[in-house]
Design a protein around this nucleic acid. Structure first.
Lengths: 191, 191
DNA sequence: TGCTATTGCTACGCAACCGTATCGTTACGA
DNA sequence: TCGTAACGATACGGTTGCGTAGCAATAGCA
């Protein structure tokens, strides 16, 4: 009987496959990942891969679902402080993390594949969550008018960052981040 | 001698191929376009396609380079008015045009393919241009402080729209558009 | 140590796609 | 009308990828 320990043989194989899959995704996009290549690179036999995932898309789904790293929820006492912290983390992630390279693939696939769309929605919710928490707290403190749409604020923050990262491809530094927050705060002030 | 008229035989073939390529791109993404399928759907023989484009990627490049429709440059006399007009056009495009379906593919490919990256940069410049013109005019009128970074403003506008369209997938209506412009104007006021 | 689940290896069959070659057939301008 | 450029149809070779099968090797628990 194979009572699978946390680092049993199965786990080691799975980990190796998932790691290689992630690397390949960031190098070649989702479309550039093939089981044969994952097998070659990871050293795990193709047969074994198919023993753990029923199909290519199942593996990709699995690998993608492990992407979003959550930031610690900051609680500085003011919305501006919380946003500054969150945005600093985002700036760092966009510079060094691996998911920014992969996300466009997911967005593209989500445009047509409903399964990927569902996955994307989950990731998206994870991204937005800490901002929504910060905004709700600010509302509770009376810092933000109750009729303000939180989604609008989140869009005003993430939007410029994502736009720069994937569309205009301009650099994203602290000055940029600070101005995004300042603009958002100005917009809230006048609501 | 084949003096190619505007609607010669060659042009008809090319047009049919490009049209089909565009349809396929919006249905299946760039990665989902194959020459065989384009040939089947368009009725143009594969051989003929290769007579006009040296390779698959050449065809895709060509098709993608014909994407961005330019809006008329508005000139309402105020930045807010110009932005409202431009943003109204953008809202309409995001709802009904075909390029929003295709652009994620381009963004994804641009992440790795330098040729697509160059194409993407050209498209991007076309998108940003009318906004930059409006901002420059506003600066000339003294409506916007001269030290304001135009790129920052463009990001503050496009960002939320693109974020909603491809990331949060929330609806984009006139109310949303109006609030984006209002936020931007508020941010400029405090610069 | 021995038994069993798990893995590796090799080899398939099948499909899709790229890009080329050949040759007969059409459209169209001179 | 007639000649040539452009096109269509078919076939091909090569590559890559998916997913499966069969069997030998191995690791790890009992």
């Amino acid at each position: 009987m194979a009572e699978i320990g946390v680092s049993g043989r199965v786990q080691r194989s799975k980990d190796a496959v998932l790691k290689t899959t992630n690397e390949l995704m960031s190098e070649a996009g989702i479309g550039g990942v093939s089981i044969d290549e994952v097998s070659r690179r990871s050293g795990v036999a193709k047969t074994t891969i198919y023993r753990h995932w029923p199909s290519r898309s199942a593996l990709l789904l699995d690998a993608c679902s492990r992407l979003g790293a959550r930031p610690d929820l900051p609680d500085t006492g003011s919305l501006e402080g919380d946003l500054a912290a969150l945005v600093g983390y985002l700036t760092e992630q966009l510079r060094s993390a691996r998911w920014p390279t992969i996300l466009p693939s997911i967005v593209d696939a989500a445009e047509r594949d409903p399964e990927i769309a569902a996955l994307h929605a989950r990731l998206q919710a994870g991204f937005a969550a800490p901002y929504l928490v910060a905004i709700e707290r600010a509302k509770a403190r009376g810092e933000v008018p109750a009729d303000q749409d939180p989604g609008q604020i989140v869009a005003a923050i993430y939007g410029p960052f994502f736009y720069r990262r994937w569309f205009s491809r301009e650099p994203i530094d602290r000055a940029f981040a600070a101005r995004v927050v300042a603009n958002v705060m100005a917009g809230i002030g006048r609501a």
